[in-house]
Simulated scan of single mutants.
Amino acid sequence: MKGQPAKVLLAGDVRALVAAARRSRHPDRNVVIVLLSTKAGLPACEIAALTWPMVLDAGGEVASMIEIPAAAKKGSGRRIPMHPMLKAALKRLQAETAATEGPVVCSERGGPMTAKSVVNWFTGTFDALGLDGCSSHSGRRTFITEAARLVHCAGGSLLDV
């Protein structure tokens, strides 16, 4: 797959990916990983670096926006609207972990998952599902493609995407 762009996922592929995540050893965490990629467009490094304060409001509830700090790519922060499926998944994960601080996506040992671990999780899951040409970047490409197709409905342009 080296040198090839990551495949854009079809709606059925995303459903299969979520279903596989739900059948895994850590279903709530893994569903959040899938949705952060496909519904928020986060790359593996940002999924691994995401902390609870970035997704919670002042009252400790899951917010309507994800706040990516200025330390992200190209040094500019951004706000990403929270997809309803992602918000529900984050609420389930927060209820399971009772967390308001620290990493959103934790490893089995309790610390934050590394970006490489997120990439490896996607690789193993795509292989298990038989989705050739997919990588951890496929969710991000899917999100951006869907946003580009729908941006005119909100009065925006491709530059906004």
Rank of each mutant, 00 (worst) to 15 (best):
A148N: 14
D160R: 03
H137G: 10
L150S: 14
G130S: 14
L131A: 02
H152A: 15
L129Y: 00
R149S: 13
L158T: 15
A148D: 13
H137D: 04
T142A: 06
I144S: 13
L159S: 12
L158G: 14
L129N: 05
A128L: 11
D127R: 02
D127L: 13
N120A: 13
G130R: 09
A147I: 05
G124K: 07
R141T: 03
T145Y: 03
T123D: 02
G124D: 06
F122W: 04
H137A: 09
S136H: 10
S136L: 00
R141N: 12
S157M: 01
L131W: 01
A128G: 11
V151I: 15
V151H: 00
S135W: 05
E146D: 09
D160N: 15
G155W: 07
G156C: 11
F143Q: 07
I144R: 12
T142G: 08
F143C: 13
R140T: 12
G133N: 08
S135H: 09
E146Y: 11
T142K: 11
G139V: 15
L159C: 08
C134R: 12
S136K: 02
F143R: 13
H152C: 10
R141H: 11
L150W: 04
T125R: 06
T142D: 10
D127S: 12
S138K: 02
G124L: 02
G130F: 03
T142Y: 08
N120I: 14
S136V: 03
E146V: 12
I144T: 13
S138R: 05
R149K: 14
A147V: 08
H137F: 03
R149Y: 03
A128H: 07
F126S: 04
W121Q: 07
G124W: 00
R140S: 04
S136R: 04
T145C: 05
G133W: 03
S138V: 05
R140H: 08
R149D: 11
G133H: 10
G124E: 04
I144F: 07
A154Q: 11
A147H: 01
N120P: 00
R140Y: 06
F122I: 05
H152R: 14
T123G: 01
F126N: 01
D132N: 15
C153V: 13
F126G: 03
R141Y: 10
F126T: 03
D160G: 06
S157H: 02
T125F: 02
R141S: 14
A148I: 15
L158M: 09
V161C: 07
H152S: 14
L150K: 10
L129Q: 02
G133P: 08
G124P: 01
E146K: 11
G155F: 05
A128M: 04
G133C: 04
C153E: 15
D132Y: 06
F126P: 01
G124H: 01
G156F: 13
G130N: 09
C153N: 12
D160C: 13
T142F: 05
S138D: 05
S136A: 12
L158E: 07
A148C: 12
F122S: 06
G156V: 11
D160H: 15
F126R: 03
